[in-house]
Design a binder for these strands. Structure first.
Lengths: 269, 269
DNA sequence: TTTATCGGTTCGTATTTTGAACCGTTGTTT
DNA sequence: AAACAACGGTTCAAAATACGAACCGATAAA
């Protein structure tokens, strides 16, 4: 592991719920040596990726990130291109909706929207979505590059009693998702949360990300599932078009098939 | 220079006008070895800071930046807290207005607004503002930590015929800014652009950043200067309050003084 | 066929990174 | 007030890693 990777990994410890971190605390969190961590923080500070509160000595994320993010979104306007569809999806289903993107072999959150609050909410505390345990991640496995499967297998951490734990089971679930056109995760990442996803594709027909609905499991009836799936299809078409992408006809066919022959996700898992 | 610093410096080559860069081109831009640069890019890609266009092999900024920027803005809501005042300033003066923040010893752009287009514009292509040649940078020298001066002196690159080139001159300009309460830069960074700034302070009374108006030099009359200064004071008060800061009374006194005894910036330089 | 450029890889050298121990300060406990 | 603990930050010899010249295969122009 390069020193660059180790240094950048420190940034992931900052979150809305833990926005400021001291040197010693960060060492404990990252299980790193203090001298090393200090030097890493210096490098990040030099680059403007973090800054230090002069009075408390705590570190927090820095202003250079805003600038780079602005360039990214100006170059690849995914977020702004997904927000309208996301709001519509969330409002129509009454549940939280979010969009994720696949970059390399990692699934990142892009935007989320909660119907209750009726406002675009900050990105969740989740930094990256595990491939094997979330609806978005499973979508990536089913519709993204085949090389992802081995990577997912090598990181099969268990989050709940329902997290899939064997490569064989995972293969079965992925096959089912590739067949139906919808990713699903039944309490496999967070207890009592059930997720359903639809894939999004880019201009070259490659898998780009997923749009998902995360639903409190007790509210998840077959009727709601049917509504969610219909709205997910609309959202996926909308976002894919907005990103300049094209939906493979096989996906459209899968959706038509699974929407006309509904069967709940309860059977699976 | 650590490998981390070298790696992060690569990100600065991405901009709205050059959003995608190939390996060889980046090596030329950064004057680095190909193998080294490739490894650095790998590390950045692993962290999601860049991603590679699968078909063209060009690299571009990655989605992890959006997420970190979101956490930063959620933690330190500077951008959202400055936008209203910025729009008002730009509309009232008819010129481009922007806000910068000081982090460590670097001045970063935060947001900008152009009156002509009547919309919040993307951050300028400028990555960081030189301390000695911009109104924002000079504000930081005049009102920020004293240690900045030596750093500025060690980086006195010349951008135009008007760029200040000697520490003695710089010291004089900084003293004048500290006295008047307004930063100014008369065609010292970009030809034909004249900048005026007012400082912004944080909750502990420390210098936090500056709000500025960038004006085409030919349009810069004493009358416009007076209007700009008045509106800058209002914007600085507004943004400082929005950031939870307090303006030192000495600054308010300077403003009162220099607004009641107007003298154009032409005399200086 | 030759030549140039591209993205990416190899491997021995040597520079950089590393972490145990240490320092001075601050705030709490005895 | 003495002892203690935790904090941010620093030192230096030992060791891991970063480095870059040379190389590879592919692609595209001459």
């Amino acid at each position: 592991m390069s020193s660059v990777t180790k240094t950048l990994a420190l940034l992931a410890y900052f979150s809305p719920s833990r926005p400021e971190i001291g040197l010693s605390q960060l060492c404990r969190l990252a299980k790193r040596d203090k001298a090393t961590t200090y030097r890493h923080l210096q490098a990040l500070e030099d680059a403007g990726f973090i800054e230090q509160n002069a009075t408390t000595k705590l570190y927090r994320l820095g202003p250079a990130l805003l600038q780079l993010a602005q360039v990214r979104e100006l170059t690849v306007p995914q977020k702004v291109g997904a927000e309208a569809a996301l709001a519509a999806l969330s409002d129509a289903t009454g549940e939280t909706a979010h969009v994720t993107v696949l970059s390399g072999s990692t699934v990142y959150p892009l935007a989320s929207h909660e119907s209750q609050l009726h406002g675009t909410r900050a990105i969740m505390d989740v930094q990256t979505f595990p491939l094997h345990a979330t609806a978005s991640g499973l979508c990536a496995l089913a519709f993204g590059p085949d090389t992802l499967f081995d990577i997912a297998v090598s990181k099969m951490e268990s989050y709940t009693a329902n997290t899939v734990t064997t490569p064989v089971e995972l293969r079965k679930i992925v096959a089912r998702i590739a067949d139906t056109g919808f990713g699903y995760a039944n309490r496999s990442y967070e207890d009592e949360i059930q997720g359903v996803s639809a894939p999004i594709f880019d201009q070259s027909g490659q898998y780009a990300g997923a749009v998902s609905v995360a639903c409190v499991a007790t509210r998840f009836t077959p009727e709601l599932e049917q509504i969610i799936k219909q709205k997910l299809v609309a959202a996926s078409r909308d976002i894919t078009r907005s990103w300049g992408g094209v939906l493979p006809s096989s996906i459209e066919a899968s959706w038509t098939r699974s929407l006309s022959h509904p069967h709940t996700l309860e059977n699976a898992s």
